[in-house]
Design a protein around this nucleic acid. Structure first.
Length: 648
RNA sequence: GCUGGCGUGGCUCAGGGGUAGAGCAGUCGAUUCGUAAUCGACAGGCCGGGGGUUCGAAUCCCCCCGCCAGCUCCA
């Protein structure tokens, strides 16, 4: 057997032959990193009797499948450890996850952070004992008799037992027995080279249903090697350092206060970021034939009946009553766009009509879901509603796809993937309309040669959508842009245009956002750049730092010079040493520092420091020209990791 | 919303029945210094809010509010 995982074995398998036996027959002892086997495409334990002929592949711990099995086995070790410590606990479920594993318990013990360490030690002991992990086939009735936990019972009831044998698989390690599909590593000692760490304990609903009991879930991270776990933990630490709520505080960008939970306040510096983003957004849209509009935030309730929001979105809406009239705060911009389209009769010559709006929407979000700017109760959608004829659908979708690609890839340097979200359970309109709209979106993506995944049942209530998920510098993905094709709202609002034939026709509408939410996009950028924004966005682009107090006049003169060239520059006039001010500017992620002392003043130059890098002396004109170009081209830092958060 | 944890000066945190502390930031003064923290003084808090227990509560108990993690939900 080779250790590269590619070696396969093909042949007739006698009943009761196991992968382990085959490996032994090949004359090798089982290597430590062999996790399990894949027999005819299905994962199997090393000790599992194989049935029929087929191809056997070895699965090692460095493969995705191998790692998943290891994590799953660790979940069992966790369960065994918890049962050993608190035997009154009942087991629910414990699968592998993206980075590790978890197990859900119903336990009289409320797990505390301090317990995690204790559990970890118990787990290490179980691994040290090198218990055999035994797979067993049980009859359904035996299983029912053994597993008294209501959760296991429910799982048993949901299982369709093998039609002939009526058996379920059970795994045993020492005194611990768990109902499980498997596969698992053959002995707990096989987990020894792996690295794991228990991360947290928190509540989780049984089967993810908020109407069912809440269990306690213990999360762990696990990797095949200690270095990978270290990497993972380091990435987690970095994510905490970059958290936009923390940077929002440190860089004085925004805050959410208890006076308005979920409704963010933007500070002057945060406002500069917003405006930079908005200016950029307007440029891109005006260039592409969009017209900007603004629709009211508060509209009469009647309108929301027409749009279907009262029926499908009411739980997320805020209401108000004045002079006996009932109003709703808009949770979406589309109905306002509809009203605008209807303000007069349109000709086919007006189409496509692209109405763009930076619209502030309000949605009631449950308190536990709020998360800084990422999840707020009001946010600005960078919306557009494109009204068009059927023939224009394809071209319009393609144009939006291009716009989004330009902004994500070229300007911000994000990679992204695309999903097509289809009809949800709670949806308005007929299935054939949905099919038509979904197909049109798919067709546009095919025409552009884009690959996409299907996201079943995740569409909006009025139409299917294309979702854009971008990947940030820490490898996390965020849903931002969407394109939604809507045949229903134009119908409900009875939109019309006069066609070339002189007859009235119904337009079709495209909803789309690019950033999704301006606030959330800013949060993503904050974390992606670790607060070290590209110069064109930076709240303060240049900090002029006088070396001596006597240099302050020259520093202020330099600031005025830069301000007159539309550069956001400030002078640090505090009576502090230069190093102090440099450190401060660095901490504030200001992209450029200009050091000015006697030498600079004499020659009318500035000493340029770009973040940590000294660029030497330039004339003021040279520096301004260089910066203006960088700003106008909206150049971004070499890597998003530039100017990191740590203190030297 | 649910489960658990947490709320002490602008920020980060110590104190856990005897009446409030540090560092940073701020103000004032001294220091004139060349690429990541100069020194000193001063000022700043009804210890999230409301009830209760107690001679006495930041500290113990109850109820609210907010924040954090996870679940559920989502741009």
């Amino acid at each position: 057997m080779a250790d590269d995982g590619k070696v396969t074995w093909t042949g007739k398998v006698a009943r009761q032959t196991t992968p382990a036996a085959i490996a032994s027959a090949q004359g090798a002892s089982l290597p430590d990193d062999l996790v399990c086997a894949r027999f005819n495409g299905r994962l199997a334990d090393l000790q599992e009797p194989l049935i029929g002929n087929g191809t056997l592949e070895w699965v090692f711990c460095d493969s995705p499948d191998g790692l998943e099995v290891i994590r799953h086995s660790l979940a069992h070790v966790l369960a065994q450890a918890v049962m050993g410590l608190w035997s009154q606990s009942q087991l629910a479920l414990g699968p592998a996850t993206e980075e590790g594993f978890y197990y859900d318990f119903d336990s009289p013990r409320t797990f505390q952070t301090a317990d995690l360490e204790r559990i970890e030690r118990a787990m290490a002991e179980i691994i040290h004992e090198d218990l055999r992990i035994q797979r067993e086939d049980w009859s359904l009735s035996d299983a029912r008799a053994c597993f008294t936990s209501p959760y296991k019972r429910e799982l048993l009831d949901g299982l369709v037992p093998d039609a002939d044998q009526g058996t379920v698989t059970v795994y045993r390690q020492g005194s611990f027995v768990d109902l499980c599909r498997g596969p698992h590593v053959s002995r707990t000692g096989r987990l020894r080279p792996c690295a794991f760490k228990l991360l947290s304990a928190a509540g989780a609903y049984w089967r993810g249903d908020e109407n069912r009991p809440m269990l306690q879930r213990i999360y762990g991270a696990a990797f095949a090697a200690p270095e990978e776990l270290d990497d993972f933990l380091a990435r987690r630490e970095e994510a905490i350092r970059r958290d936009h709520r923390r940077l929002g505080q440190e860089l004085d960008l925004f805050s959410v206060r208890s006076e308005a939970p979920g409704f963010p306040f933007f500070h002057p510096k945060g406002m500069v970021l917003r405006q930079a983003l908005e200016r950029f957004w307007r440029e891109e849209h005006l260039r592409r034939g969009y017209l900007e509009v603004q629709t009211p935030v508060l509209l009469r309730e009647e309108l929301w009946h027409t749009s279907g929001h009262m029926q499908y979105f009411q739980d997320n809406m805020y209401f108000s009553a004045v002079e006996g009239d009932r109003y709703a705060l808009k949770p979406m911009n589309c109905p306002g766009g509809m009203v605008l389209f209807k303000r007069r009769l349109h000709s086919y010559r007006d189409l496509p009509l692209r109405l763009a709006e930076l619209g502030l929407v309000h949605r009631h979000e449950r308190s536990g879901t709020l998360h800084g700017l990422m999840r707020a109760r009001c946010f600005t959608q960078d919306d557009a509603h494109i009204f068009m004829t059927p023939e224009q659908i394809q071209g319009e979708i393609e144009d939006v796809l291009e716009l989004i690609d330009h902004v994500y890839s070229a300007v911000f340097g994000f990679s992204y993937h695309v999903e097509l979200s289809t009809k949800p359970d709670k949806a308005m309109g007929e299935p054939d309309i949905w099919d038509m709209a979904t197909e049109a979106l798919a067709e546009a993506m095919r025409a552009k040669g884009m690959s996409y995944q299907i996201h079943e049942g995740e569409g909006a209530f009025y139409g299917p959508k294309i979702d854009f998920h971008l990947r940030d510098s820490l490898g996390r993905t965020w849903q931002c842009g969407t394109i939604q094709l809507d045949f229903l709202l134009p119908e409900r609002f009875q939109l019309q245009y006069i066609g070339r034939d002189g007859q009235r026709h119904r337009p079709i509408m495209l909803h789309r956002v690019l950033f999704g939410s301006l606030e959330r996009f800013l949060a993503i950028l904050t974390e992606h750049f670790a607060g070290a924004f590209p110069t064109w966005m930076a709240p303060v682009q240049v900090m002029v730092i006088p070396v001596y107090t006597r240099s302050l006049d020259y520093a202020q003169q330099t600031v005025r010079f830069l301000n007159s060239r539309q550069i956001r520059a400030e002078a640090d006039d505090r009576p502090q040493k230069m190093g102090y001010k440099i450190r401060d500017a660095q901490t504030q992620r200001i992209p450029y520092m200009l050091i000015v002392g006697d030498r600079e003043e004499e020659q009318q130059t500035v000493s340029v420091r770009r973040r940590q890098e000294e660029l030497g002396r330039r004339t003021k004109d040279e520096f301004a020209a260089m910066l203006t170009e960088e700003i106008e081209k909206r150049r971004r830092p070499e890597t998003a990791l530039a100017g990191l958060s740590e203190t030297k």
